[in-house]
Amino acid sequence: MIVLVLLLATAAFRGLGALGVRRYGDWRVAAAHGMAVMLLLTASAHFVPADVTVMPTHADLTAMVPPFLPYADGLVYLTGVLELIGAAGLVLTATRRAAGAGLALLFVLLLPANIYAVIADVSLASPLWQRIPEQLLYIACALYVASRSETKKEVLV
């Protein structure tokens, strides 16, 4: 589901570019904005109380934290905040490359939690086995956004 948000949002932004919105005339910029939309959704799960069942909740994400890491509750809040900061960084031209690189690193650091959740059979609304390939896609997308070549001037809107 989250992958669809990333893909559809990216396609929508690139579609706007095809319709003449110059800011989204580049696939990397469209991908950056698509990833920002996705991150707003995923970051919100870090703050959702346990009684909401539509998406993973804070308690679900806390259960995914490997037991050797201290302060699981705080780590979930921290990663949610980092995702929100990353989303903001992706839409700002001046910070897009740094945000993409930082998010790629964050996604690499979050990969052990997804692996642990699969091994420990943590119960979530979505199948855990798909989270690992999704995480690899997010890393690739963040690196793609971070690799932005500066061959043309971007429109600052």
Rank of each mutant, 00 (worst) to 15 (best):
M1Q: 08
M1F: 11
M1D: 09
I2P: 13
I2E: 12
I2G: 14
V3H: 01
V3M: 09
L4G: 11
V5A: 07
V5Y: 02
L8T: 00
A9S: 13
T10Y: 02
T10N: 06
F13S: 11
R14W: 13
G15M: 10
L16V: 10
L19H: 11
L19N: 14
R23A: 14
Y24S: 08
W27L: 14
R28S: 05
R28G: 07
V29K: 07
A30W: 10
A30R: 08
A30K: 09
A31S: 15
A32L: 06
G34K: 02
G34V: 12
M35S: 11
V37H: 05
V37A: 05
M38Y: 04
L39G: 02
L39E: 00
L40R: 02
L41H: 07
T42M: 13
S44C: 11
S44P: 03
A45Y: 06
H46R: 05
V48E: 03
P49G: 02
A50G: 02
D51R: 10
D51N: 12
T53R: 11
T53W: 08
V54N: 06
P56F: 03
T57W: 03
H58S: 05
H58M: 03
A59V: 04
A63C: 06
A63E: 11
A63K: 10
M64W: 11
M64R: 02
M64D: 12
P66T: 03
P66C: 08
P67C: 07
L69K: 09
P70Y: 04
P70N: 06
P70T: 01
Y71F: 15
Y71Q: 05
A72Q: 11
D73L: 07
D73K: 04
D73T: 15
Y77I: 12
Y77M: 06
L78M: 07
L78Y: 06
L78C: 05
G80I: 13
G80K: 00
V81E: 04
L82N: 01
E83L: 02
I85Y: 00
I85E: 00
I85A: 04
G86R: 03
G86E: 04
A88S: 01
G89H: 01
V91D: 00
V91K: 00
T93M: 15
T93I: 00
A94V: 08
A94K: 10
T95A: 02
T95N: 05
T95D: 01
R96G: 00
R97A: 12
R97L: 07
R97W: 05
A98K: 12
A98G: 09
A99R: 07
A101G: 10
A101I: 00
G102C: 08
L103P: 00
L103I: 02
A104F: 08
L105P: 01
F107C: 07
L109H: 09
L111T: 06
N114T: 01
I115A: 14
I115R: 05
Y116A: 10
Y116R: 01
A117Y: 14
I119Y: 11
L124Y: 04
L124P: 15
A125D: 12
A125E: 13
P127K: 10
L128K: 14
L128D: 15
L128F: 08
I132P: 13
I132R: 04
P133Q: 05
P133N: 03
Q135N: 12
Q135F: 04
L136C: 11
A140L: 08
A142P: 08
A142F: 09
A142R: 02
A142I: 09
Y144Q: 01
A146Y: 04
R148W: 06
S149P: 14
S149E: 09
E150N: 12
E150K: 15
T151A: 15
K153V: 15
K153P: 15
V155C: 12
